[in-house]
């Protein structure tokens, strides 16, 4: 057990120094075409419920990953932007510290983890998330027979009244690490792919270990285009974005 002194010293930023893995995701906004394949991929992988027309009207859709669409300019100089938005896995996550029951915390690999069966549903985390990427189970999610046959056995189905959110496909990370361990090696770059990164047709999403300086994500995160959303809030997200090009290259 650590001494009190040691334990006081532990700070969030040490993830990158003290752990083999620090997972990160880079999304190239210049590549995203808003096709929504990642949305369905995430839904299939993580047993994300559909809520139906009525609830969607109340903005209660559960997609862990959503594609935000922004429109700029006036006709005919209109520009549409897509912004895939999922849990940003902030190193200084606003959502974590406000949870009264430790239902969400930061794991040693830099992931913001939601523990469903601890959650009592105060929704404080949802209020404190500047990205609004935490979703609440307003009702019991409906997977009636025979639709339940599709459910991924690796991921639990959430009860009503708990928060859920993107886990960066925690189960895939674990499987990747298990496989690597079985084969007696470190996880290689590209071994682990969350469902969205796996499926993105344009290759806009890249996932990897940012502690590995040879990894793609490390290089991308250190390119000039890399930004964090709401950087001014100081959340230090593990999900980073690569800026798009200029609006009108021709003009």
């Amino acid at each position: 057990m650590r001494t009190l002194k040691e334990s006081i010293k532990v700070k969030s930023f040490n993830y990158k120094k003290h752990n083999d893995y620090s997972w990160s995701m880079i999304i190239d906004l210049d590549r995203c075409n808003g096709c929504g394949a990642c949305v369905i991929g995430c839904q299939a992988e993580n047993n994300v419920a559909t809520v139906g027309e009525e609830e969607v009207g109340k903005k209660r859709n559960m997609h862990w990953l959503r594609i935000e669409r922004y429109i700029e300019g006036e006709y005919p100089h209109v520009k549409v932007r897509f912004l895939p938005m999922m849990c940003q896995h902030c190193a200084q996550a606003p959502c974590e510290s406000v949870c009264p029951v430790y239902a969400t915390y930061h794991n040693p690999e830099g992931l913001n983890v939601q523990v469903y069966n601890r959650c009592i549903g105060t929704r404080f985390c949802g209020n404190n998330c500047p990205y609004s990427v935490r979703y609440f189970n307003w009702f019991d999610s409906s997977f009636p027979e025979p639709v339940n046959n599709q459910l991924n056995p690796d991921v639990s189905v959430r009860e009503r009244g708990v928060m859920e959110k993107c886990s960066l496909c925690m189960q895939r990370i674990r499987r990747g690490k298990d496989t690597a361990k079985d084969e007696g090696r470190e996880v290689q770059d590209g071994d682990i792919q969350p469902a969205c990164a796996q499926t993105c047709p344009t290759g806009a999403i890249t996932f990897g270990n940012i502690n590995d300086h040879e990894s793609k994500v490390y290089k991308m995160a250190h390119s000039g285009r890399a930004i964090s959303l709401f950087e001014e809030k100081g959340t230090h997200p593990a999900v980073k974005y690569l800026k798009g090009g200029t609006n009108d290259v021709i003009g």
Partner: peptide, 8 residues
């Protein structure tokens, strides 16, 4: 966090 389920 995956509630004890081992990845299959």
């Amino acid at each position: 966090p995956n509630d004890g389920a081992n990845p299959v």
